[in-house]
Computed example of a mutant assay.
Amino acid sequence: MVSRSPYIIRLTALMLLAAMPARAEVLKDAFNSPMWEMLSERYFGQAAVIFDDRVKVSVPPIVENQAQVPITADARMLDGVKKLIVFADLNPIQLALELEPIKAKAFVAFRMKIEQATPVRAAALTEDGVWHVGGVFLNAAGGGCTAPPKDNGGVSWFDTLGETQGRLWQEKDGSVRARFRISHPMDTGLGRDNTPAYYIEKVEAKEPAGATLARLAMHEPVSQNPTLTLVVDLPRQDQGLDIDSRDNNGTIYRANLAAPWRQSHDDQREGSLNAP
């Protein structure tokens, strides 16, 4: 057996430490959130992080329903966004949603469950490997994450599960705004009745030919019957937008939203949702 002196062992350890990448310094948080340092390490790792006013998060000034809080994350002022995530620091499950804007804008609007007053943040990863973080403080009462889903209008969930309704609008820049709602209870698994977590975990917006325009990973904090708004680059000659989703039980749901330039007035009126 070859013996090694304590000096050699210490020298080897120091060399290994020197070779390791230095952990990025955690930025001082304007909200003084007790969770910021941990969440920064969890979501951004060793990557560079900056607070950036070009990443906008919009929330209502008054929250009337903690289980259905409208959230808008908009990073369209940045170029080359590869990923956009939304999280609430003081929720029991912080990460709500992740967007990959493959052929889409770095924009998403949805509704979220909130457990208590908390910073709500959006972080955009750009092609240079930098995370750009924006956020607001949401003043809300508690209970949104632990409350059970509301009754489905007297209809069994099994009869409506995965049903998707929505509409498309042509934007001035040629892109298409898609707003759609998927019927699903979106159980967090945190309720007192011990109902297990049951939620839609993946949504893809696709061209009818199959190309993915935007990909969403959703998590338990997204509200019951998730209502989502995306802005995608949909070719005008396409028949519409396909919405494929999958829940954490592996069930797959598929729907098509007809293109506005091919919808009749009656189709628009019958299938429309109120504009966000």
Score class of each variant (00 low, 15 high):
Met1Lys: 10
Val2Gly: 05
Ile8Asn: 07
Ile9Tyr: 12
Ile9Arg: 14
Ile9Pro: 02
Leu14Asn: 09
Met15Arg: 15
Leu17Cys: 06
Ala19Gly: 12
Met20Cys: 12
Arg23Thr: 08
Ala24Val: 12
Leu27Tyr: 01
Lys28Asp: 13
Asp29Tyr: 07
Ala30Thr: 10
Phe31Lys: 03
Phe31Trp: 14
Phe31Val: 02
Pro34Lys: 03
Met35Asn: 09
Met35Gln: 12
Trp36Ala: 09
Glu37Tyr: 00
Met38Asp: 12
Leu39Gln: 11
Arg42Gly: 01
Arg42Tyr: 13
Arg42Asn: 10
Gln46Thr: 11
Gln46Arg: 13
Ile50Lys: 12
Ile50Cys: 05
Arg54Asn: 13
Pro61Asp: 15
Ile62Thr: 15
Val63Arg: 07
Glu64Thr: 14
Ala67Met: 15
Ala67Tyr: 02
Gln68Leu: 13
Gln68Ala: 13
Ile71Gly: 03
Thr72Leu: 13
Ala73Thr: 04
Gly80Asp: 15
Lys83Met: 14
Leu84Ser: 05
Leu84Glu: 05
Ala88Glu: 13
Asp89Phe: 01
Pro92Phe: 09
Ile93Cys: 00
Glu98Val: 15
Pro101Asp: 06
Pro101Phe: 03
Ile102Thr: 09
Ala104Gly: 04
Ala106Ser: 11
Phe107Ile: 02
Lys113Arg: 15
Ala117Gly: 15
Pro119Tyr: 06
Ala122Tyr: 02
Leu125Cys: 07
Leu125Pro: 02
Thr126Leu: 01
Glu127Asn: 10
Val130Cys: 04
Val133Phe: 03
Gly134Glu: 08
Gly134Leu: 08
Gly135Gln: 02
Phe137Asp: 08
Leu138Phe: 05
Leu138Thr: 02
Ala141Arg: 11
Gly144Ile: 08
Cys145Gln: 15
Ala147Leu: 11
Lys150Val: 13
Asn152Val: 10
Gly153Arg: 11
Val155His: 09
Asp159Cys: 01
Asp159Phe: 08
Gly162His: 08
Gly166Tyr: 07
Gly174His: 09
Arg177Thr: 14
Arg177Ser: 14
Ala178Asp: 08
Arg179Gly: 11
Ile182Tyr: 06
Ser183Tyr: 07
Ser183Met: 14
Pro185Ala: 11
Gly189Arg: 04
Gly191Phe: 02
Gly191Glu: 13
Asp193Pro: 01
Pro196Val: 09
Val203Arg: 03
Glu204His: 09
Ala205Pro: 02
Ala211Arg: 15
Thr212Cys: 12
Leu213Phe: 11
Ala214Cys: 08
Leu216Val: 08
Ala217Ser: 12
His219Glu: 10
Glu220Met: 13
Val222Glu: 07
Gln224Leu: 02
Asn225Pro: 02
Asn225Gly: 01
Leu228Thr: 09
Gln237Ala: 15
Gln239Cys: 00
Gly240Ile: 10
Gly240Asp: 11
Gly240Arg: 07
Asp242Lys: 13
Ile243Trp: 10
Asp247Trp: 03
Asp247Cys: 06
Asp247Val: 02
Asn248Val: 04
Gly250Ser: 08
Thr251Gln: 13
Thr251Gly: 00
Leu257Met: 07
Leu257Trp: 06
Ala258Asp: 06
Ala259Met: 06
Ala259Val: 05
Arg262Leu: 15
Gln263Arg: 13
Ser264His: 06
Gln268Pro: 00
Ser272Thr: 14
Ala275Glu: 14
